[in-house]
């Protein structure tokens, strides 16, 4: 049996108390909510925190509040199951419900939280291995070593952002409220991340993601999320495509396209989105947009599926997601993958 390393477990009951504990223990402490990402990593000794600050007992972190008109706020410790099943989210932000409902397995979604998924550790199949395996192949810079095994000449880590919900939240224009002992601030999703496999979060380590704020639902916005993975369950995305667009009749008035699992952070395709705006969507335009979005994607050989294949499918998925959102009907996307 693989077991956890020893640690001290602290269970604050308020977010302020949690923030104080994190500040007090500094680098020795880590936050845990559902534990579905952290505990496997701890079992493989990717992390050996001396102190865990548990967020499960903090009531203010749980639950979905607000309304479509005024904006919905999701407590960071709300489970992915709860997000996926929430009526308002299903109705107004279907891509988010889809993405949350596609994370790993049903059991894991009952434990894993939206905050945890947004902050989920970047992945690489040189990194998500046991201590013995990593030692045998030579430790990489993300843990215990100093080189990148995917791109040996590289000075940075290329571990892959593997969140399903992050690209969707980004495309939906969501914001995050961060709380620390020093106070709190609200940032756009985009500001949470940076393109580095190790330091993929741009927030300070002592800041706790308190909640996810969705903008007020505006007439005409539609969204979709497509996920590439080998199986319909368990697997992390090896490509995620989130598309949100505001339609007026058949003309696109506003659009955002964000790709997941193609870099160390969600990657917006601004050019592609811009190409849609003000246009009537046609198959030719979709093909053009798909090229623009997929062009910069540079998957590497560190996830499931070959990276040339992931690149090929990026184009297909962008086209399908755009078609689904902009009302060109079913073009092969299954209902499970598209909302």
């Amino acid at each position: 049996m693989i077991r956890l390393p020893a640690f001290t477990y602290l269970a604050p009951s308020t977010i302020d108390a949690a923030a104080r504990l994190v500040a007090e223990h500094g680098r020795e402490a880590m936050l845990v909510a559902g534990g579905t990402d952290l505990y496997p990593n701890m079992k493989r000794r990717q992390f050996e925190p001396k102190v865990l600050v548990g967020l499960r007992g903090i009531r203010e972190l749980r639950g979905i509040r607000g309304s479509a008109a005024g904006g919905v706020t999701i407590g960071a410790a709300t489970t992915l199951s709860a997000v996926a099943a929430h009526r308002d989210i299903v109705r107004d932000f279907p891509a988010l419900a889809t993405a949350a409902g596609l994370v790993s397995s049903p059991q894991l979604r009952n434990m894993g939280t939206i905050g945890g998924n947004v902050c989920v550790d970047t992945r690489c199949n040189y990194y998500n291995q046991s201590y013995e395996w990593r030692k045998a192949i030579g430790f990489c810079m993300k843990k215990d070593g100093d080189i990148c095994l995917v791109a040996p000449g590289s000075s940075r880590c290329w571990a892959v952002s593997s969140s399903d919900t992050a690209p969707v939240l980004w495309a939906l224009g969501a914001k995050l409220r961060l709380v620390s002992a020093e106070g709190e601030r609200t940032i756009p999703m985009a500001a949470l991340y940076q393109d580095d496999g190790i330091e993929y979060l741009a927030k300070r380590p002592d800041e706790i993601v308190a909640d996810v704020q969705l903008p007020a639902a505006v007439e005409g916005w539609r969204s979709a999320y497509l996920k590439l993975r080998r199986r319909g369950s368990f697997d992390f995305p090896v490509l995620g495509v989130a598309v949100a667009a505001r339609m007026e009749g058949d003309v696109v008035r506003d659009a955002r396209i964000v790709l997941g699992a193609v870099a160390s952070q969600p990657r917006p395709s601004e050019k592609a989105a811009a190409a849609l705006v003000g246009q009537r969507v046609t198959p030719d335009l979709i093909a053009h947009v798909a090229d623009l979005a997929a062009g910069p994607a540079k998957p590497l050989d560190n996830t499931d599926f070959s990276h040339p294949y992931r690149k090929k499918v990026t184009r297909v998925f962008v086209a399908r997601a755009v078609a689904a959102v902009c009302g060109l009907g079913d073009s092969g996307a299954t209902s499970e993958e598209v909302a």
Binding site: G35, K43, R56
Partner: peptide
């Protein structure tokens, strides 16, 4: 697997299926 990758260790906590390999009693 003890890593949340197979579902074998599923138990119910307040009626919901969870993975006992990734749950701490203290929680």
């Amino acid at each position: 697997c003890e890593l949340g990758e197979c579902g074998t260790c599923t138990v119910l906590v307040d009626g919901e299926p969870v993975l006992s390999c990734l749950a701490l009693p203290v929680e």
